[in-house]
Design a protein around this nucleic acid. Structure first.
Lengths: 336, 336
DNA sequence: CCACTATTTGGCAGCGCTGCCAAAAATTAC
DNA sequence: GTAATTTTTGGCAGCGCTGCCAAATAGTGG
């Protein structure tokens, strides 16, 4: 029918219209709008008035094409359902908002092929910079990123080779610190609950550091439960239940994140298992939910907001490749 | 100097380069890449090969400018720290991803002026559509959105006048249903914990529906605790503690969301208050955390993922303004 | 009052791509 | 074989803006 002809030539107000209305050249209007170059105060007022009246909205697509430089920053994260990533975004926003940069967020669902796809389509918008969670990428992703010439920061993890800027902490070391804590407190028969390793390379690294420390101390990871996609209370609760059914004499369980750990804690409450005397529980991330549980959870507080903020800052600043280590902190609660 | 020349002319591969390499006109390359119009299989192969070899990444900025139609969908939400909104995004992604649309997410922090700002700057990128949480906007926002001619869906709330498409449920009615549940189960001295009303208009509407039902039943909201920004366990826990200190003889508390409610539950566990015999607790949203708590939380499961999905679908389809009501469901747990 | 320097303005090319239409090549019909 | 199609390809204008430079205007000093 005819719903299509507004598709073509919307009666969009363009610079030309504003220019005609004010009786000044397009370049002048453009300078005023960007507050760049020189013009008189009188001109400025007239332009602003016309812009207001006509409801002119600058077209950044045209602007960017002409000036080759967008105000877009691509952010690539595996999920929004793990609080870590919204926190990362908030941190980045602290840096980016005041300087007028806009974030374009893409979610990969912990899938490197999906990551490649979203990065490719973001690249088509020629972002000024990229923030990407993690160091693991397909070779093709890495190549695209390198060739693009776009500044890129990889966040959260420092165990590995980065493309340009890397901001995070050693996941391996975080796992090791957790393991050391449990060992020092005398736990020996320890279980582990975490996501499928294929899904989350950072969890895998933590587990590696963790089990290595245990081995050195003559303890060991007696039981392992690997959970599919979700980062949920349910999964943690069910995992602990299954694990205890198989091996009732565990004395501690290390959960790959606080959501799982809280699920575990719930299982204990619901089944009269006393924590930590019968079973100790340790989480990871330092979430609010764990901190204010009836028994505060022992966990590792990760500096995710700072990582977002620092990553964004570094990617916007000139300067070469760098690695920044942002420290985490072990928080002893009442569950170990 | 010449430091300018890499700024200006990155050695970007453009259609022209590909065209030269293949020995075909630019239009042909363009058609192949968009799989639009006709070309021979041989041509397609040659083009794809050259694209691969040169590492050509199409420039959508130019493409969009030329064709006036972007593949961007703007999504505006108040926060990422309340699971409701990531769920909304996931729902929208279900619709949008397969048809090749890219989401640009902006967060307003429950601030309508901020919302206006982000919508204005998104508009500069001429998105194909907008999804916005809530019906409350500044007059200016509403005007911009209307004049833009961009298709827009307002999500989550149907109590009020929408701009174009509205997908959600009646927040008022949700509050009323919750109130009715508590009244029917015999609770009379009831407290309410929720965010500052100024922050969250949807919570305000629920509260209105809730307290109206109570009033009709001769019960009433005896105590109210309003919480600042966060949607956190801590806030809920502290609020309940303060509330009970003032008014120990409450028999039920309605929390504006499950995060608060879980905080409340934690307070009860930690202080030996037995739920629901001493104090009943009701939440809102149907989060995983509440469902798998030691005592499953009574709550109202909200269809946020579906709302995102339906909203996105409607905004992409032709057709006039519509309101879609997506039903919620009361889930009776063990806390009332 | 004029030469001379700041300040403000306008014109034009072109960013990289797509839509349109016409030209060329391949295919079919007679 | 040629005429009539159909399929494939190329050329060109222009999307709305910005960068560059030249033109106009205002301001200064002698």
């Amino acid at each position: 029918m005819d719903q299509d002809d507004d598709h073509k030539h919307r009666n969009e107000v363009t610079l030309r219209e504003v220019s005609a209305a004010v009786g000044l050249g397009m370049s002048t209007i453009s300078r005023v709008l960007r507050n760049h170059g020189s013009f008189s105060q009188a001109t400025r007022d007239r332009v602003m008035k016309a812009v207001e009246e006509l409801g002119y909205v600058p077209n950044r697509i045209a602007g960017t094409l002409a000036s080759s430089g967008s105000n877009l920053v691509g952010i690539v994260i595996p999920s929004l359902h793990n609080i870590v990533f919204p926190d990362l975004l908030s941190g980045a926003a602290v840096t980016l908002d005041p300087i007028g940069f806009q974030t374009v967020i893409a979610v990969t669902d912990y899938d490197l092929d999906q990551e490649q796809k979203v990065i490719q389509s973001m690249l088509a918008w020629r972002p000024a910079a990229f923030l990407v969670a993690g160091l693991e990428h397909t070779p093709r992703t890495r190549a695209m990123l390198k060739n693009s010439g776009v500044r890129i920061a990889e966040l959260l993890d420092t165990d590995g080779e980065g493309i340009d800027i890397v901001v995070g902490f050693s996941q391996r070391e975080a796992g090791a610190v957790s393991g050391r804590h449990l060992v020092e407190r005398g736990y020996r028969r320890i279980g582990y609950v975490g996501p499928q390793f294929a899904c989350d390379p950072r969890a895998r690294k933590r587990f590696a550091g963790f089990s290595e420390v245990l081995a050195e101390a003559g303890a060991s990871v007696v039981e392992t439960e690997l959970i599919g996609r979700t980062s949920s209370t349910e999964a943690g609760r069910a995992a602990l239940e299954r694990m205890l059914a198989r091996t009732p004499d565990l004395d501690a369980v290390y959960f790959s994140n606080d959501d799982f750990a809280v699920g575990g804690l719930f299982h204990c409450f619901a089944n009269g298992i006393s924590v930590p005397s019968q079973l100790a529980i340790m989480g990871f991330n330092g979430l609010d939910i764990g901190r204010f549980a009836p028994q505060p959870l022992t966990t590792l507080r990760t500096p995710r907001t700072e990582i977002g903020e620092i990553g964004a800052r570094m990617v916007m600043e000139p300067g070469g490749a760098k690695v920044v280590d942002v420290p985490f902190e072990l928080v002893r609660g009442a569950t170990t």
